[in-house]
Write a protein that binds this DNA or RNA. Structure first.
Lengths: 230, 230
DNA sequence: CTGATCAGATTGACATCGTTAACCTGACGG
DNA sequence: CCGTCAGGTTAACGATGTCAATCTGATCAG
């Protein structure tokens, strides 16, 4: 790991960029903390002197940003894999995959989402990942299960899933239920149905008691519908 | 601000603790970045030498933690003020107040929620604020508009609102709608109805098209109900 | 084969950060 | 009036991000 790297041949300086990125990612996952992501540590791990990092990244922020782009790429790939089939179900699959990724890679997720992004504008990799979300939502709008602007709907659903996983990661001491998988499922379904219902609701609401009765009736109706379908 | 502070009398050393906390909070709000929260800057602003901070806080982490406790207190107060009346509406008011606070104090919110908490366990101020959330939810369960474990429901609703505001704060470059107030409103209603619906849903869902039709019918029914009530 | 060139990488240093050890000081109790 | 000790200060250390100056060796013209 700490062996001195042999110098790259002319025109192959880019190779070091990859090795530095790898080293940074490994440091994150192995240490489990972004504090361990030190330029010196990264350089040491890449078998190179500290200032060499500056040959390929403007500063530390640029290095972190590059790591983030990798994570966005991963998320985008995750979405792409989970599309297809019934749009509402596909949306749920994407959300679940997103949540699982976040919980499986908490440090990466934290660096990606909970860090003040210095560079303005949406980076391409992030835009592409978001585009996948929007496409998944658009499909749901086309089958009329969701209504409204796909971008806004996507932001809302993203918020819901992100909120859950980011709290799980950043505030693990709160009384979260044992089964994270079930919690995610809960959140995803809740967000999905919330979005589906919201656009159909009247602006003013009936009192809680009447609302509860109507919700009961709706639930029963849906249950009956499923029973007769199968 | 940078004038040398007169030494505290015996037994009044605690006063400096307050002044340091004030200085830290001011630094956060004025600079708009947590990077500006330097022990040296805090000490300078409190009119005191840098190591004096260590007389009242074990280390920087403890200082930041203390700032966070203040923010939790504020949030708890916010909830307390917004309770009362129809439980479901009160819950909505709390959520909106929470979101507004977060967007009005982005740096504090970021430090509070998006920072790896070193100290394990839920701090008392946080527990109390969360208790308020749970109480607001419990009231909704009692009127039967919500069903299930209040703690889990509260975590879910908190996730939804937190997700929205934390993304707004951390990823401002995404195509958020102009009107933040409307977005918050959207999210809060979406989360509330999602929660209300979720517990009443069958495990399997009908195909998107049928689901859409049933949702339409439910919306119409609710609209009619509101119309006849008024 | 040889010398010049310049991408690729290093050395050494700087300012700033959190943190600690050692020292100072002046308001109070006796 | 004097010693004590809570309430500070000074000076320094190691680690970090960053940069200017320097070295080096693969490559290519002749």
């Amino acid at each position: 790991m700490t062996t001195r790297r042999v110098r790259a041949r002319r025109g192959e300086g880019v190779l070091l960029r990859e090795e530095i990125l790898r080293a940074a990612e490994d440091l994150l996952t192995e240490s489990g903390s972004e504090d361990a992501l030190t330029l010196r540590a990264v350089a040491l791990r890449a078998g190179v002197s500290t200032p060499s990092v500056y040959l390929h990244f403007a500063d530390k922020e640029a290095l972190v940003e590059a790591v983030c782009m990798r994570v966005w790429d991963e998320l985008g790939r995750l979405f792409a894999v989970n599309l297809g089939g019934d749009p509402f179900l596909a949306l749920g699959r994407c959300a679940r995959a997103y949540a699982r990724f976040a919980l499986d890679h908490p440090v990466q997720y934290r660096v990606l989402m909970m860090r003040p992004s210095a560079t303005p504008g949406v980076p391409p990799a992030a835009a592409e990942a978001f585009l996948h979300m929007v496409r998944a939502v658009t499909a749901c709008v086309e089958t009329r299960v969701l209504e409204g602007d796909p971008e806004e709907l996507a932001l809302g659903l993203w918020s819901a899933v992100h909120g859950c996983v980011s709290l799980l990661i950043a505030q693990p001491s709160f009384p979260w239920p044992r089964d994270q998988e079930a919690l995610i499922d809960h959140i995803v379904r809740q967000a999905g149905f919330g979005a589906a219902l919201y656009s159909r609701l009247p602006r003013r609401l009936p009192p809680s008691a009447e609302l509860a009765a109507d919700l009961d009736a709706f639930g029963a109706r849906l249950a009956a519908r499923v029973a007769e379908d199968s």
